[in-house]
Amino acid sequence: MTLRPGDAGIAATGVRRSFAGVDAVRGMDVHAAPGEVTGLVGPNGAGKTTLLLVLATLLVPDGGSVRVAGHDPVTEPRAVRARMGWSPDVFGLYEGVTAREYLEFYAAAYGLDAARRRRRAAALLDQARLGEFADRPVGVLSRGQKQRLGLVRALVHEPAVLLLDEPASGLDPRSRVELRELLRELARAGTTVLVSSHVLSDLEELADRVVFVDAGRTVGDHRVAALPRGTAWRPWRIRSLDPAALLAVLDQAGVDHGEPGSGGVDVVLAGDEEAVDLLAMLVAARVPVAAFQPVGGSLEAAFLSLTDQAP
């Protein structure tokens, strides 16, 4: 996937930024295409938020080339802002105003005319399932409701590029599913969506592509559909009706395992084939296996195997 400057979407190459001696971002390449949801995945402190601030026209990078919706955020911030929506990881809301006034203020800030402001605010309140809270002060909304309101705020001006920093944190399962559907729908309509997260199970079903970052660098860039599923190191959990027999066989076979817990015993295996072999061995040894399943999604497995190659 290559994007040239001038194309729509996001093209960030070799981005660097340090803060008072701390290298927050030291060479990130992140590309995101229109019509796709791209995940930005990395551990705490990897530099995801810093990169998004650069893309969101808030921070000048030390180096690298950046294009958002075809424009340079440093030299043409206004052009970028007109086409880009951004929702920060920690954000506040104007507590004193109602949800409707809140959205209408941002609509006005983006220069929408009065009629369109009202229409957008009403549509977004519906989208965030906040219709019944439209005329209540923002301050009384629950954390998840605030999160949803802050998220749709980034959509008031129908941006072509959407940057979301940890949008799923604080959302209940239903809201997560809705977020996923909303973003997929936006992508289908041609929006470029870049979502940072460290909740990998969310991204697994949401993203078309993921960019792995660690310690300020891009360490991987994959299509989710093409992630190495069968060959990666990953943890598996085995539950047996006879835990002692299970442990005995594992020890005998020299398989490293964790402490047995109520959910079963965790082992780390090198891929699907090793799992098949182990299961066959357990069955042959007449260990009553009740469950034998991978722990975490394949994205998590890929991420773990990318960040530390030999677990």
Binding site: T57, A82, W86, F91, Y106, A109, Y110, G111, G150
Partner: peptide
């Protein structure tokens, strides 16, 4: 945390 969200508008 509201300033930055206003700064990225028009």
């Amino acid at each position: 945390g509201v300033l930055a969200t206003v700064q990225v508008t028009g």
